[in-house]
């Protein structure tokens, strides 16, 4: 059945068996349980739960804020990757090391820190107040929290590709008369796009499911600033398992469809 790369190296049965067993016990069987619970509902009930106005509002909020945050990161992340790879300047090492802070910092800490910053009386929030708008407790605050939590994804996927890009290609373009901006647009950008999309997709997927950093800054007003994961939490606290399960299934299915689309787009770009 299997063609082994290295028939002489022992351990195929042991490692594959253990890997499958562990994945099944920890990930696959528990995830399947959710679908078993969802299957107990009639289609009518399931549809009624997921088309409830409060669920739809949360769905729209979660996916749109995650999308905006991924787009913002697409820009900031590319800029940071560029600056870190191409230039040497004072503080480069510090920025390089600190880029991963959002991955290392517990999300609850990020949540209360960002709330303190962007609240109407906070260090940054007060400027927004004097300009007549609010950041914390609005979708804008949620977007900022998601931007923080997913900041490293685009930087860390684009950075190695940019660092390995052969300089001769850019120099050739420049010698042929391309302006720096044209070199970026026509030479570098197409090469970076697959990695950029990977980073974008990772940031988006993480943003949709993110909970800890968002609930503090969101304000959690039903219909206005209530995200989908929080709604699952609310249903669970009311022991409304059918509700929680249906929203969970909805979330997983929508995320997978979107990730699949991004994957297809990526394949299309890589094989022109």
């Amino acid at each position: 059945m299997s063609r082994r790369l290295s028939p002489v190296i022992p351990g195929f049965g042991l490692t594959l068996g253990y890997t499958l067993l562990y994945l099944s016990l920890v990930v696959l069987i528990p995830l399947a349980t959710m679908f078993v619970f969802a299957a107990r509902l009639t289609w009518h009930d399931f549809w009624a739960i997921i088309t409830d106005a409060r669920v739809l509002a949360a769905l729209r909020l979660s996916f749109s804020t995650a999308l905006f945050a991924a787009v913002i990161n697409g820009v900031i992340g590319t800029l940071l990757a560029w600056v870190l790879v191409r230039y040497s300047f004072p503080g480069r090492k510090i920025i390089e090391a600190m880029i991963d802070l959002p991955f290392a910092l517990p999300t609850a800490v990020a949540g209360i820190a960002l709330t303190a910053l962007y609240a109407p009386t906070g260090w940054v929030g007060q400027f927004a107040t004097s300009l007549g708008f609010k950041i914390a407790y609005t979708p804008l605050g949620i977007t900022l929290a998601l931007t923080f939590v997913t900041l490293p994804f685009v930087v860390r996927t684009v950075q190695p590709v940019l660092a390995d890009f052969p300089r001769e290609v850019e120099e050739a373009a420049a010698c042929l008369g391309a302006k720096p901006w044209q070199v970026f647009r026509h030479v570098l950008a197409p090469a970076l796009l697959p990695a950029w999309l990977t980073g974008f997709a990772l940031a988006f997927a993480r943003g949709v499911g993110e909970y800890g950093s968002v609930i503090f800054i969101a304000g959690n007003m039903p219909m206005k600033t209530e995200i989908l994961p929080l709604l699952i939490m609310v249903k669970l606290e009311q022991f409304n398992y059918p509700g929680a399960t249906s929203i969970g299934v909805l979330m997983l299915v929508v995320s997978f469809i979107l990730l699949l689309l991004i994957n297809l787009l990526q394949r299309r770009i890589q094989t022109p």
Binding site: V27, M34, G209, T245, M251
Partner: peptide, 17 residues
């Protein structure tokens, strides 16, 4: 797979089990 599953869902599935 666990990277694309919301942490809240990760908790939910164990409650359901």
């Amino acid at each position: 797979l666990p990277f694309s599953v919301s942490p809240v869902i990760a908790g939910l599935i164990y409650v359901l089990l």
